[in-house]
Computed example of a mutant assay.
Amino acid sequence: MTAATSSPATPAPKSAPKPDPKPDRVYFFGTCLVDMLYPEAGLAGMDLLRHAGVTVIFPEGQSCCGQPARNSGYLEEAKAVARAQLDAFPGDLPIVVPSGSCAGMMKTHYPHLFEGDPDQPRAIAFAARIHELTAFLVNVLGVTLQDKGEPMTVTWHPSCHSLREMGVTDEPKALLRQLANVTLVENSRERECCGFGGTFAVRQAAVSTAMVADKLASVRDTGAGTLLSGDCGCLMNIGGHAEKVGDGTRCRHIAEFLMERCHAR
């Protein structure tokens, strides 16, 4: 009598992973340039989060992310500034940052900055909580926008750090494409640096000026009258050069632009 054979059981289909639950509360890291030069961008970023149903906590003890000191080679000073941020944002709430540059510093470089330090585990846990604003709005909160503004054309400039350290690519554009009366024109030289780079713009002024001139020329080529970005350093550099040469391009932070288009503030 031949033993009966059975075919292997068909594996049960794998269920799709459940998305992370939307947080009820978040921290907001304001950044130095928002604090000193672009306060409306920070207020708009917090308003966008609140309109999405999230309570925003702004720790008053926060300061700089430490990037200027680190980039200038002052690692111990940068670590002291960074440690102050670890203390200012306790717990496990997400930390939302309206700047790919500052977000990149905290998410990518804090763990390395504290290598061999007793605070490295804290720095690693802190880094895992960092989110760039537009990516958080799209990927975590899944916001939907209703455009209430007049028709206009814009173009987009990503910062180097948002692209290469935070991996933020299409999220800002996904938000802009939700706006029915806004035409987003692609810049063929979008991924090129604007030449700011913090202290680079001071130490290598001639190179920086040439780079920002190229960037502004590429913006003009799009035909858009408004340039949007998620980093105030880039906005300061491009907008400052545009003003100096008499170019009429308007440079704005995406948070302020979205808030103005979609909500009465």
Rank of each mutant, 00 (worst) to 15 (best):
2 T>A: 14
3 A>V: 12
4 A>I: 13
7 S>V: 13
8 P>G: 14
10 T>F: 10
11 P>Q: 09
19 P>M: 13
19 P>S: 12
20 D>Y: 12
21 P>S: 11
22 K>R: 15
26 V>W: 08
26 V>Y: 09
27 Y>D: 11
28 F>K: 06
28 F>A: 12
29 F>W: 09
32 C>V: 07
36 M>N: 11
39 P>H: 14
39 P>K: 14
39 P>M: 13
40 E>M: 11
41 A>E: 01
43 L>S: 10
44 A>Q: 04
44 A>Y: 08
48 L>R: 00
52 A>D: 05
54 V>S: 06
55 T>L: 14
56 V>D: 11
57 I>Y: 06
59 P>A: 02
60 E>Q: 13
61 G>R: 07
63 S>I: 10
64 C>A: 11
66 G>C: 09
71 N>S: 15
76 E>H: 12
78 A>R: 04
78 A>C: 08
81 V>D: 00
81 V>A: 08
83 R>H: 11
83 R>P: 01
85 Q>Y: 08
87 D>M: 03
87 D>C: 05
88 A>T: 11
88 A>D: 04
88 A>K: 02
89 F>Q: 00
89 F>T: 04
90 P>K: 02
95 I>S: 08
95 I>D: 02
96 V>K: 05
99 S>A: 09
100 G>L: 03
102 C>M: 02
104 G>P: 04
105 M>A: 07
105 M>I: 03
109 H>T: 07
114 F>S: 03
115 E>A: 15
117 D>L: 11
117 D>R: 07
117 D>F: 12
118 P>E: 09
119 D>G: 09
123 A>I: 09
124 I>A: 15
124 I>S: 14
124 I>Q: 15
125 A>D: 14
125 A>M: 10
128 A>G: 14
132 E>Y: 06
135 A>R: 13
135 A>K: 15
136 F>V: 12
138 V>H: 06
138 V>M: 05
139 N>H: 14
141 L>G: 14
141 L>W: 14
142 G>P: 13
143 V>F: 15
145 L>E: 12
145 L>I: 15
150 E>Y: 07
157 H>M: 00
158 P>G: 02
159 S>N: 10
159 S>W: 03
161 H>D: 13
164 R>G: 09
165 E>G: 02
166 M>D: 05
169 T>K: 10
169 T>E: 10
174 A>Y: 13
176 L>H: 06
176 L>T: 03
177 R>H: 15
178 Q>K: 06
179 L>Q: 01
183 T>P: 01
183 T>I: 05
183 T>G: 04
183 T>V: 08
186 E>M: 00
187 N>I: 00
188 S>R: 09
188 S>H: 12
190 E>V: 00
190 E>K: 01
199 T>C: 02
200 F>W: 10
201 A>Y: 03
206 A>M: 09
208 S>Y: 09
215 K>F: 05
215 K>Q: 07
219 V>W: 00
221 D>W: 04
223 G>T: 02
225 G>P: 00
227 L>M: 10
227 L>F: 06
227 L>V: 06
228 L>V: 03
231 D>L: 07
233 G>R: 03
233 G>M: 05
234 C>M: 02
235 L>Y: 11
235 L>C: 10
235 L>M: 13
236 M>C: 04
237 N>M: 05
238 I>C: 01
238 I>F: 03
239 G>R: 01
241 H>G: 00
241 H>S: 02
244 K>V: 10
245 V>R: 00
246 G>C: 06
249 T>C: 01
251 C>E: 03
253 H>S: 09
261 R>H: 07
265 R>G: 10
